[in-house]
Design a protein around this nucleic acid. Structure first.
Length: 279
DNA sequence: GATACTCCTCCCCC
DNA sequence: AGGGGGAGGAGTA
């Protein structure tokens, strides 16, 4: 039983740009249909023009998850400061920042350190198959993300068996911290960007870059401006900040991040995603 | 506070 | 086919 959602002319949205730009890692496309796992759901969706056809969630969730309630054109206008970002916007308009579940997002980005996309996908699907609840829908069966409770109960060897490598100790330690503090996400939500960042970086396996990704994708702190190797190169090439030759030091990271935030403003994170998509 | 090294897996290239 | 090197961030000394 699938539902239909019609996008109006003022609501640009590209499902494929949004799902394949490297913010989520449990979505796959087959014959025009995307299928993915998030927050206990197995969602199946396709886009033909301004028409979304989907199953596995209700409309409220669809709009929330894909940030369809945001006025994307205004957001993009606000960050459209020069010809480089303008080119990226024209090419990828419709890319939206997904609202991820805080815990699923945090787990994802601990895995994402020192890893490329297929590797991240493998770690997450391995852990989900090991400890995630089974989700059954008419379009198939999948495993949800493991909860922090489940992951704090399994041993580090099991997590390590999911190809997570040295990240397994970070995952177990942080899963336990989060499971033991029911209010962890509320505290981060309520805090402003800088204090939320300090708070979240206390968990093992969360440094500057991972913290900025989690705040952007899991906590809707849109001024967050994560700087990975790609963004480092782009910012050096177009804006002359940083030195893309040297490995990115902590100080350099902060310089580039602050430049991005001051230059692009309160939706700097959207600018970052568009520049990244255009890499 | 800044630097160098290690941690682990995947992937590409020879 | 097997081995070496590079890519990717956080933690530690």
């Amino acid at each position: 039983m699938s539902r239909i959602f019609l996008l109006d002319d003022n609501t640009p949205f590209s499902l494929s740009e949004t799902l394949s730009c490297g913010q989520v890692f449990r979505w796959h496309e087959e014959n025009g249909w995307w299928q993915g796992v998030c927050q206990g759901r197995l969602i199946r969706i396709r886009q033909i023009g301004n028409r979304l056809e989907y199953s596995g969630c209700d409309e409220t969730f669809l709009v929330y998850y894909f940030h369809l309630d945001a006025d994307l054109n205004s957001i993009l206008d606000s960050v459209n400061k020069d010809e480089y970002i303008n080119a990226a916007i024209e090419k990828h308009r419709g890319l939206r920042i997904i609202r991820q579940d805080p815990w699923e997002c945090l787990l994802t980005y601990i895995c994402a350190q020192n890893a490329n996309i297929p590797f991240i996908e493998r770690m997450l699907s391995n852990m989900s198959e090991m400890s995630g609840e089974v989700i059954k829908t008419e379009s198939g069966t999948a495993h949800a993300y493991p909860t922090s409770e489940k992951l704090s109960l399994v041993c580090e060897t099991d997590v390590s068996g999911c190809s997570t490598g040295y990240r397994s100790s970070y995952i177990c330690s942080t899963a336990y911290e989060i499971f033991s503090d029911k209010m962890w996400a509320d505290k981060i939500y309520k805090a402003d960007y800088e204090s939320a960042r300090k708070e979240i970086m206390r968990y093992k396996g969360i440094g500057r870059k991972v913290a900025d990704c989690i705040l952007l994708f899991g906590f809707q702190k849109y001024e967050s401006f994560p700087v990975d190797r790609w963004v480092d190169r782009i910012m050096h090439k177009y804006y002359g900040v940083g030195d893309s030759e040297k490995p990115l030091s902590g100080g350099e990271y902060e310089k580039i991040r602050k430049f991005g935030q001051e230059y692009f403003g309160r939706y700097a994170g959207y600018a970052q995603e568009y520049l990244f998509a255009d890499r």
